[in-house]
Nucleic acid binder design. Sequence first.
RNA 1: GCGCCUCUAGCUCAACGGCAGAGCAACGGACUCUUAAUCCGCAGGUUUCGGGUUCGAAUCCCGAGGGGCGCACCA
Length: 509
Amino acid sequence: MSSPGSPCTDSDWSTSATSGKVDHLMPPEAPDQPSEAPDQPSPRTIPYRFERTADAATLQAEHGGLDAGEDSGVEVSVAGRVMLVRPQGRLAFATMRDASGAIQLFATKAATEDFEGFTRLSLGDWVGARGRVVKTRRGELSVQVQHWELLAEARRSFGDKWKGVTDVETRFRQREVDLWANEHTRDVLLLRSRMVSSIRRRLEGLGFVEVETPVLHSIPGGAQARPFTTHHNALDMGLYLRIAPELYLKRLVVGGFDKVFEIGRVFRNEGISPRHNPEFTMLEAYWAYADYTDLLVLVEQLVSELAGELLGRTTITYQGRELDLAPPWRRATMAELVSEAVGAAVDVHTPAAELARRLEGLGVEPHASWGSGKLLLELYEKAAETDLWGPVFVTDFPAEVSPLARRHRRDPALAERFEAIVAGRELANAFSELVDPDDQRARFEAQAAERAAGDDEAMVVDEDYLRALDYGLPPTAGLGVGLDRLAMLLADVANIREVIAFPTLRPER
RNA sequence: GCGCCUCUAGCUCAACGGCAGAGCAACGGACUCUUAAUCCGCAGGUUUCGGGUUCGAAUCCCGAGGGGCGCACCA
């Protein structure tokens, strides 16, 4: 952009180039070889804009019915990337793709400007073309090119035109290459985009208001995870990238937003795996005057409706295994599932020694500090969770392992909390929120003790949050959903990197 | 973090102890209805990197780096 009050002319622009060379005096018929100095602009003329009047999908829809050899007489301008070129003497065919789909460009020596240049187009070049919509004798819908312009030159050649790019490392490091080479990549990222858009629309339809809360936290809170650290220079203070937006969102409920949600990136400094990326997208929603049973219904409806809207069905296949998402989903308490798995009636009131003995039987060494609640959770994770495929709601977690959840109305050793297990994975975590400031302080302090004992994922006491609770948090239900995981489910992909445009990788040397 | 697998031309892959190759892309040419067009020609490499064994290493061994998968941790 030019600076205000000093109109930018061609000569301004050209002489300001670092080379000092006057670009517009360069010969237009410059050689095809890449410039020796890579920081100089390409000698080929690239326009500043191109007036496009149609995309490929629209043309296919509106003119697909033409007979072979028929000329619609309709003139259009299209633009996109050259995927294949088939020159044939005084004719040439090119397959061009835009964001909507593909269309053939049909050029002839007789009717196409700079026909020789057209036949020399490279795979990957971007072109704009104007001409009539016709169907070739062989029945391929085409734009018969009269005028065309090079919109970008592909100076690097790309993948095999038949096999594309399959090298996993190249696919994730150079996602721009993956995107044009592999249709599936575009489909998956587009599905994710539609999913997020639909979730927003549905929550707004239910009266939820989207908000944004800080990513930089002075205390990491709302989850048990190791944070990334950073530093603010002017304040000369350490800061953390958020591990969850939870506490700020509930402070907004205290402030009077009675139905809020946030869709945003959270950061956890943990291992990378096919199911974990250090930054991922979380949906959190808070609903005043509701409890966790309301969220059970909301989650099963939301997920099944998303599948219906995006995939056209609620019985889906994930990695070859069927999954029926239609509500209602099975509900089972954690104690029931563990009892089923170990073949004996156990719950959070079972003596810790017995639970510990059963855990040892599964090859897990219990810590001395674990109470019955933590032991039951460990038993659940080791003995029951691995066999769950779902969809199923696992309800009533021990309060001991749910430091932000409200105690169960029928049993204070339990929390009103559930996780939704779908395709064998946690898809959602929700609870009736803990609203009692004194109980919350006690839970934070228990967490702080864990932390002091060496658990670097345990929470710390957040006085700002406790003060907010003192002002009064009404009964509220809270929900968290990992949207990357949900996208994996709907797209039927096994690796989280498939649903993230630019997943975290080590830098190349 | 630990274990297993993997890395050869721009891309996709051969060669598996004996002269580093093919297809596609690129480059030059022929061709008026192609669809991965076809045909002719021409180029293309520090076999990820560093050591070692050997008369000889892309190949075997050791180490480093990137990536994948599994386990651990988590969502």
